[in-house]
Design a protein around this nucleic acid. Structure first.
Lengths: 257, 257
DNA sequence: ACTGAGGCCTCTCGCAGCGAGAGGGTCAAG
DNA sequence: CTTGACCCTCTCGCTGCGAGAGGCCTCAGT
């Protein structure tokens, strides 16, 4: 009739039995009655409430807030949803930026022109970029201006020629590095160190954000001041280079949403 | 020099001391040595490893996978990152959709004076609309709020989607409903019940997604088969019907101009 | 030698939303 | 009466730490 056990409600709602028990526990959806055997029995009202729960859950509201919304009719629903929207938007942006980071790096290193063009623009935040740019210059000096220029060009009006130049810069680093190390050049050599610094700047540009920025800046200081650290860093960075290069190649092959 | 305590590493990296201890616990980043006093001491190698950890963390990889990637050089890092990118993209899309849904709902709830709203309630005093809503809620209890939300959202969607089909469908329901109720037909009449079922289906179709879709389909079945449930549902849904009828009447009028 | 201010340590609980058992009653049908 | 399908109440596990509680270590100042 109008009485349903957990299992039935579970089938009806598509939720798991465990989930329904959980909702009971937290007071979100209590059964109409509980039999002496401990069985939970739900009535029509509970199903209707469950329907409302599902609606709000669909919007991504945390269960606790759903309960508040449903239990207190005077509760400011609009305000609640608005706050929630802010949270959601932030999350959405975060993920967009993560994807962007990958795609941008990809475009810079391996890039096969046109496909990545889209990725470069996607989710681009100019304010952050300016801030970041200032930091990069401050940190690495005017020597990295070339890459910033390239990036700016890429972002403002990305022309194939500019893109090619940008790409060429990376190809330059990469091939030089490979050649030098392949020829057995010592890591201490001025040439390799210069390449490392360029790579260093590139890595920073590609992913450093707070709090990583802090970490990177401080570690970079260590790098500058401590010969011991520098030696170790260079030994590790070599692997990092290869790794990133390989990774980016595969990203290039991966479909871009 | 080359030795750092947790606190120092924390400052360098921007992570919390607790986080570093956590990384130690899970074996992601162990100190170089642990003093007899139990103090954790980190060396340059650990800082470099930390840098790589931060890099991967920035990409959103779960700590466990970071560890695998860093600890097993033969591990297919690229494949790991590749699948991770897929996850990221999916998450990003999910959040975008949530925000969109919320925006629609919010816009509808708020009546933010957009064109749709105006068109929809043209010639209809917005104050009266709010009043009407309040009345509906008061009369039928806060339980109908979900209906109002759903309908408002649905209206937005309908407006943008295949409006014509909707309008034909709804005009049919609406005129029949108006006629029947205007003639004093009881809610229990088979005719009105059929109309309500159609409305029900419409609302469900307008926003149901899995698993809600399941819930709705099954609840609709209940509605069809269970008199008791039907009675309760109708008590709740009556408000929906009236509200929808009034709103859509004005909506239809606005479209006719 | 003593004291206070910071570090540092190891627990342990808590958060969201359940999944996945373990170990054991209950109900309807044959 | 038995079998199989359901139901129950624990309790741990997952993520990535935050937030204490309770207590030891170390260094600088008196």
């Amino acid at each position: 009739m109008g009485i349903y056990t957990v299992g039935e409600v579970a089938r009806l709602s598509g939720l798991s039995i465990r989930a329904l028990r959980h909702y009971d526990e937290i007071g979100l959806l209590k059964p109409m009655t509980v039999g002496e055997n401990g069985y939970r029995y739900y009535g029509a009202d509970e199903l209707l409430r469950l329907q409302q729960i599902l609606f709000h859950r669909e919007l991504g509201l945390p269960l606790d807030e759903i309960r508040q919304v449903l239990d207190a009719p005077d509760f400011d629903r609009v305000a609640a949803l608005k706050t929630h929207r802010v949270r959601l938007a932030a999350e959405a942006r975060r993920y967009r930026e993560l994807v962007k980071t990958l795609d941008t790096t990809l475009a810079a290193l391996e890039g096969d022109g046109k496909m990545n063009e889209k990725a470069m623009y996607k989710g681009f935040d100019p304010k952050k970029q300016a801030e970041y740019e200032a930091w990069v210059i401050e940190r690495y000096g005017p020597g990295v201006q070339w890459s910033i220029d390239a990036v700016k060009t890429a972002q403002k009006d990305w022309k194939q020629a500019d893109f090619d130049r940008f790409q060429a810069e990376f190809a330059d680093i990469e091939s030089n590095m490979a050649t030098s190390l392949g020829d057995g050049a010592p890591v201490e050599s001025e040439h390799v160190q210069a390449l490392m610094r360029r790579l260093h700047a590139w890595v920073a540009r590609s992913w450093a954000r707070p709090p990583n920025r802090v970490a990177f800046a401080n570690l970079a200081d260590l790098y500058d001041q401590n010969p011991d650290f520098r030696a170790r860093y260079e030994a590790k960075a070599e692997g990092l280079t290869e790794y990133l290069g390989a990774a980016m190649k595969h990203f290039a092959e991966a479909e871009l949403e």
